[in-house]
Amino acid sequence: MESVLTINHLSKHYGKIKAVNDLSFSVPKQSVFGILGPNGSGKTTTLGMVLGVINSTSGDYKWFSETPKASLRRKIGAILEAPIFYPYLSAVDNLLIVAKIKQADEKNIEQVLKTVGLYERRNYAFSTYSLGMKQRLAIAAALIADPEVLILDEPTNGLDPQGIADIRNLILDIAKQGKTIVLASHLLDEVEKVCNHMVVMKTGQLLYEGKVADLLGNQNSFEVKAENIQKLEEVAKNWNVIHKIDKLNHSLILACNNDITGTNLNKYFYEQGIILSQIQPHHNSLEKKFLELLNN
């Protein structure tokens, strides 16, 4: 598969501390690529190196199969850590600077401000913005040159639930347009909900690289509830399509064969005289897998 970014044995050492150590992976074109890792695992350092602001100790990287240079970065929209703008300038002036650096059409400013919902406040100074507005302006800046790749480092940091949902939808919309998105996060939930490829990092090293679905395995689990939970468990034990049962406080997690759907479950238990009060697909396995990876 064609890759947008290829990283080869990249390292960054600060004295004895190895912030990033011999890291290699590649980001496939048109993927939503997650970089997952706890705080201090080297995510931002890695992105800083491939964006030309941190000098690497050793190793190299390529953008669009080319040796990195400034003009390639104009095709990338990137936010690293917190949103960075001139505090005394308005949103429009700040975006004008970005548009000029990226040699993008200045007419895009109005459009991206509307996309992120800041058009009404466009003439206010950046310093008067709330955290959520600052994040949205950062996304507007990243979008301004209609980039081929979007790099977002903890884009939902500090946002309220509505803001988080808005930004997730925005990311998914952009991904639908065939763009590549690289998302660094320490939130599993975020990576699981939007990414299809991912790497897991810990203390500067790569723990896992691959598809999110592959890491999860082909698990088909449901969380079910019924008034008589003992009877439910007995019936479930005797049904051969269920190969594992985990008990939670007031519900059961049933790991089923892949062809089993919620409808099948509902129908079968009904026929056995059990009325399910709740049935929903179960996903906490990424969290488990993640913790397993980190603890190994």
Partner: peptide, 21 residues
């Protein structure tokens, strides 16, 4: 020094300036 305290020097490079620019 503003460019460093606001970290905008960094952002200018990320956005597509060379350090020489």
């Amino acid at each position: 020094t503003n460019e460093f305290t606001y970290k905008t020097a960094r952002q200018n490079i990320i956005d597509g300036w060379d350090r020489k620019d």
